[in-house]
Simulated assay, not measured.
Amino acid sequence: MIKLKPGCSAAVLVLAAIASKPACAEVTLYGILDTFVGYTNAGGKGAQTAEQSGGLYASRVGLRGSEDLGGSLRATFDLENGILTNNGSATNSTQAFSRNAWVGLASRYGEVRFGLQNSALLIMHSRFDAFNGGTYGSLLHNASTFTFRYNNMITYWSPNVAGFTFSGGVSLGGQTSPHDALNAYVGAIDYQRGPVYLGVSHAEQNGANGEVLTKTTFAGGSYQFGNLTGYVGFYRGNNLGANLNTNVAGTYHSVYWLSAGYMVTPALHLMAGIGYVQDSTAQHDNAGEVSIGTYYNLSKRTLLYATVARLVNRHGASYALIGNGPFTPNTPARGEGVTGAQLGIVQFF
Rank of each mutant, 00 (worst) to 15 (best):
N151S: 15
S59G: 10
T94A: 08
S93Q: 10
M153T: 02
R64V: 06
Y150F: 15
R60E: 12
F128N: 00
N81D: 11
F114R: 02
L69S: 08
R64N: 13
A162P: 12
G44A: 08
Y57W: 06
S72Y: 13
S138W: 01
G70K: 04
A47I: 07
E51H: 07
G110V: 09
N41D: 11
A162T: 15
V103G: 10
A101C: 06
R64S: 13
N152H: 15
G104W: 04
T94D: 05
G65F: 05
G38E: 07
M124R: 10
D78C: 00
F146A: 09
G163T: 02
L116K: 12
H125G: 01
V161T: 14
G54L: 13
P159G: 11
Y39N: 10
G65P: 04
Q52W: 10
F131K: 04
H125V: 02
A50F: 00
S72F: 13
S72Q: 14
G133K: 00
T40V: 03
W102F: 15
G62W: 11
L56D: 07
H141V: 08
N86R: 06
A130R: 04
S144T: 14
W157A: 08
S66G: 05
F97W: 13
F164W: 04
R149C: 01
H141L: 14
S98E: 03
F131G: 03
